[in-house]
């Protein structure tokens, strides 16, 4: 009684098989191919990443007795410390040329959190002269940390520039 305008039985089996195969090929192919190469074969990568608290913007100050008297009794702390921290400035020179300069503002509403930066520099593999300068104290005249090194990077190698006080400041790993 019912017709659905479709083809013959044999044709339909073969056709179904082919369509399933086509779908399988589609899935099978794009699940691995075409291959992806993120960096060209002769490149290496320098990553700059740090997360550090800049120095406090101002020194703590002794409150005078008059000042203390004006404060509500539960807030009469003898030292007045501003929580705001310095922003952190970082500069990188690569093979003698400046390639990066960034001023990182402390996080948090009252600017009392960490300053962070993350930057990638793809470079041609081989020897490079890296100079890193960092300043975490607004009141200091120049950069209060710096590090220079000549590194040899094999293709695909990642060099991480980080900051770690316990390890003496700027680190190159």
């Amino acid at each position: 009684m019912s017709k659905d305008l479709s083809g013959s039985k044999a044709l339909s089996w073969v056709g179904q098989g082919l369509l399933y195969a086509l779908f399988a090929l589609f899935i099978g192919y794009f699940s691995t191919s075409p291959p992806y190469r993120h960096l060209a074969a002769d490149q290496a990568l320098i990553k700059l990443s740090f997360s550090l608290h800049g120095k406090l913007v101002s020194e703590c100050r002794q409150r005078s007795p008059e000042e203390l008297a004006k404060l509500p009794p539960n807030m009469r702390a003898p030292m007045d410390c501003k929580r705001e921290r310095s922003s952190v400035t970082v500069e990188i020179d690569l093979d003698g040329a400046p390639v990066f300069r960034h001023v990182s503002i402390p996080s948090g509403l009252s600017k009392d959190g960490a300053s962070t930066v993350y930057q990638r520099f793809p470079v041609v593999a081989g020897e490079h002269r890296v100079v890193v300068r960092l300043k975490d104290d607004q009141r200091a005249a120049g950069f209060n940390y710096s590090r220079e090194a000549t590194v040899t990077l094999l293709p695909g190698k990642i060099l991480v520039i980080d900051f770690n006080l316990e390890k003496g400041g700027i680190t190159l790993i």
């Binding site: 099978g28 993120h38 190698k157």
Partner: peptide, 28 residues
């Protein structure tokens, strides 16, 4: 059939000191 014909395998183990080289890539 697809699983038997082309079993899924892992690539080189992760090494965070290296940028992965050419990757077999799942585009989906």
């Amino acid at each position: 059939v697809l699983s038997l014909a082309q079993p899924v395998t892992s690539q080189q183990p992760a090494d965070l000191s290296l940028v992965p080289s050419q990757l077999g890539f799942d585009w989906f």
